[in-house]
């Protein structure tokens, strides 16, 4: 079991309020991702759950039990750090065994669990090495191994992949997702990479300046963003925003159109937006066009990779009328 409930959690460092007031309900077995821009308080929130920071006020419940004041060692959670935080003076085997030793598990149990974790994570041939002699990906696997052997109520990950190169990141992302499907243990995963958030999460918490902007499934956030911040944050490339008279036509303060929701033409038809191609980014499968639209500014358009455009080409854009997002003056979705 591993449900996590935050109730009116607040956190200040001295005079500075980092988390004004957050309430969240994370179900047992869920994979929840905290995502948001740098400095929005993702790590702080995770550390509050872990017990590494004390809450200023509010309650943290694990499986319904009030753990607000409990030290990290008593909460039964495991954490994987961005820096891996392996014990440099211990071998891989001792690193993975450490939580079990702290729990005073018998030696046979320790050996058996360490072997099992090492096999699951492809670490069997490195067990007698020191962390110093491992690659970044292997170190991160050791950190995960150390987390799984203690069979925690929940796993907490703080940007575990951000020190890895792109290819390895994709691999590890899959491995962690697979691990979740295998263990079915609650996981909270902090990242500022919205692709990680979309691909891994059951539900995503979008944070901004210490506030929850929206909490929902990836497709919910994509299809029904609660406000302009979420609309802009989820989806890659970013949504295009237009305000002024063009938005007023749709009875909104501002409208948003995703790059993939445009019809593109090379000849004008009534009502289209005319623009000039600035940069065309060709990825092979897709081409991202950065178009300077007359009177509306720079917009990003996604087209399929077979279309070739070059700098200075005139293009005509028609936003898909059924896929237009409307926002009021405060940024709330209409």
């Amino acid at each position: 079991m591993g449900s996590i409930t935050l109730s009116h959690v607040k956190k200040s460092f001295g005079e500075v309020q980092i988390i004004p007031d957050i309430s969240l309900d994370i179900k047992d077995g869920e994979f929840v991702v905290f995502v948001g821009p740098s400095g929005c308080g993702k790590s702080t929130l995770l550390r509050l759950i872990a017990g590494l920071e004390d809450t200023t006020s509010g309650q943290i419940l694990l499986d319904g039990e009030d753990m607000t004041k409990a030290p990290p060692a008593r909460r039964g959670l495991a954490m994987v750090f961005q820096s891996y935080a392996l014990y440099p003076h211990m071998t891989v085997r001792d690193n993975i065994a450490f939580p079990l030793k702290m729990a005073k598990a018998p030696k046979e149990v320790i050996d058996q669990k360490v072997e099992y974790a090492a096999r699951t994570l492809n670490l069997s041939s490195y067990l007698d090495r020191r962390p110093r002699a491992l690659s970044g990906g292997q170190r991160q696997r050791v950190a995960i191994g150390r987390a799984i052997v203690r069979e925690p109520k929940a796993f907490l990950f703080d940007e575990p992949l951000s020190n890895l190169d792109a290819a390895l990141r994709v691999n590890m992302r899959l491995e962690i997702t697979e691990l979740h499907q295998q263990l079915k243990t609650t996981m909270i995963y902090v990242t500022h990479d919205q692709v990680e958030a979309m691909t891994m999460a059951d539900r995503i918490v979008v944070l901004n300046a210490g506030n929850v902007e929206q909490f929902g499934s990836p497709l919910d956030l994509y299809k029904k963003p609660a406000n302009r911040f979420v609309a802009g944050f989820i989806g890659s490339p970013r949504m295009n925003f237009v305000d002024g008279p063009e938005a007023a036509k749709y009875d909104a303060h501002a409208i948003g159109v995703r790059p993939e929701h445009f019809k593109l033409a090379t000849a004008p038809t009534p009502g289209t937006w005319k623009g000039k191609v600035g940069v065309a980014e060709q990825l092979g499968s897709d081409t991202f066009l950065h178009v300077h639209v007359d009177g509306l500014g720079l917009m990003t358009i996604r087209t399929d990779g077979d279309q070739t455009f070059s700098h200075g080409d005139d293009v005509y854009l028609t936003p898909d009328p059924t896929r237009i997002y409307r926002f009021d003056a405060a940024g709330k979705a209409l």
Binding site: L52, A73, F81, A85, Y87, P88, H89, A103
Partner: peptide, 29 residues
């Protein structure tokens, strides 16, 4: 000494005494 490593020990269930004896002291030898 990176504080992360001591925090990892706390997460791994080490009480203060174990954190000092098994993690801090060996690293600071």
């Amino acid at each position: 000494i990176p504080v992360d490593i001591l925090e990892a020990a706390r997460m791994d269930g080490a009480e203060l005494w174990n954190e000092i004896v098994h993690v801090l002291v060996p690293m600071a030898v």
